[in-house]
Simulated assay, not measured.
Amino acid sequence: MFTHIMIGSNDLEQARRFYDATFTALGGKPGEMDARGRLIYLHDGSRLMITTPIDGKPATAANGGTIGIAAATADNVQAWHDAGVANGGTSIETPPTERPNGAFVAYLRDPDGNKLTARTPAKK
């Protein structure tokens, strides 16, 4: 359905530290800068792109938006959460936890305020 998701950042190096740490915790690879100065993460056919806004205004987080990231195991979700908090992210909502449907879920805000979740597939 999607070709990519792009979010804004006011500090690409800080975003790189955060996303490199969280995505490698899930078994992904560090991001790479493209020719336009965008930070790009590729994994299993998905692409997350992070950029400074082209209009020159500050990047802001989407109010009500959440980016969901697939994780294989509860240990991966916990590692993602721990790596995010250690690299400038903020733990939000509840601590990493199993949901009634059996999915293990954690939530973070990245250093720019974007809301993220990592979760395992539901079991029920």
Rank of each mutant, 00 (worst) to 15 (best):
H43R: 15
G88E: 10
A79W: 02
P58L: 12
T97E: 05
A86K: 14
R16L: 05
S91A: 15
R17A: 10
P121S: 06
T97I: 00
H4R: 12
Y41K: 11
R47I: 13
L39K: 06
G45E: 12
K115P: 02
A25I: 03
L12T: 08
A122Y: 07
E98D: 00
G88N: 11
A106V: 00
D110G: 05
N63Y: 09
F104E: 00
T60S: 14
N114S: 10
P100Y: 00
D20H: 10
A118K: 08
Y41V: 12
R119H: 11
I5H: 04
I40G: 13
D44L: 05
G102E: 03
S46T: 12
K115D: 03
T66Q: 10
R17H: 05
P95A: 12
G68C: 11
T117C: 03
D44Q: 13
H43A: 12
G84P: 02
A118P: 07
G102L: 01
G89K: 10
G89P: 08
S9V: 10
P111Q: 05
L39D: 03
A72E: 15
T51H: 12
D75C: 07
M49I: 15
I67M: 11
S46P: 00
P121H: 06
T94M: 11
A72D: 13
F18W: 01
H43G: 11
R38C: 02
G37V: 12
F2S: 11
A72V: 09
L26W: 03
N101C: 07
L12F: 07
Y19F: 14
P111T: 06
R47S: 13
I7H: 08
G45T: 12
K115A: 07
D75A: 15
R38K: 09
N114M: 08
G113R: 01
P111H: 05
E32Q: 15
G68H: 11
N87P: 08
L116A: 05
P111L: 04
L48V: 13
D11T: 08
G113P: 04
M49S: 15
